[in-house]
């Protein structure tokens, strides 16, 4: 069974989906990510779907579930790189992915995560304490 690799970069997790996933692969990714968020204490997850030429309701649901799970684990998820044709199809399909943050590319996604964290922590110094805790664990 193929598994999608989850990379840790700084205090973020990066998932780049490069294959046409079987449904089971998508479910595995969901589990792997949850485990990895807990294990690393990362506060941000970036899912790059720029290589996906379609997103159907199953993958859409997977993305929503991942966003939901990471929220519970106090991490923010950003889906980046959705292709225009995929976005148009999703609109027609009626899938609006509520509750999922999106960005055009990985760079903008990282900026979005940094900004979200800044706002969540009241734009103050509280962030440093959290990071020390995360690094120590």
């Amino acid at each position: 069974m193929e598994r999608v690799p989850v990379l840790k970069i700084g205090d973020m997790l990066l998932v780049s989906i490069q294959v046409d996933m079987e449904d089971q692969t998508a479910l595995n990714l969901q589990e792997d990510l949850a485990d990895k968020i807990v294990a690393t204490g990362c506060r941000g997850v970036i899912i790059d779907i720029s290589a996906l030429d379609i997103v159907d309701s199953f993958v859409g649901r997977m993305l929503a579930t991942i966003a939901g799970i990471s929220k519970v684990l106090d991490a923010e998820t950003v889906v980046v790189g959705m292709r225009p044709a995929v976005a148009i199809t999703l609109v027609e399909l009626g899938l609006s992915l509520p509750g999922i943050r999106t960005a055009l590319n990985v760079e903008l996604g990282m900026a979005l995560l940094a900004r979200a964290r800044f706002e969540a922590e009241g734009g103050g110094d509280a962030g440093e304490d959290d990071e020390t805790v995360a690094a120590a664990s």
């Binding site: 449904d23 379609i54 159907d56 199953f58 292709r83 044709a85 148009i88 199809t89 027609e92 399909l93």
Partner: peptide
Amino acid sequence: SLVDQTKLVTAASELAR
């Protein structure tokens, strides 16, 4: 067209599932 390909493949994926 690329958009129509994407729509059709997505529909096929839903229906095959």
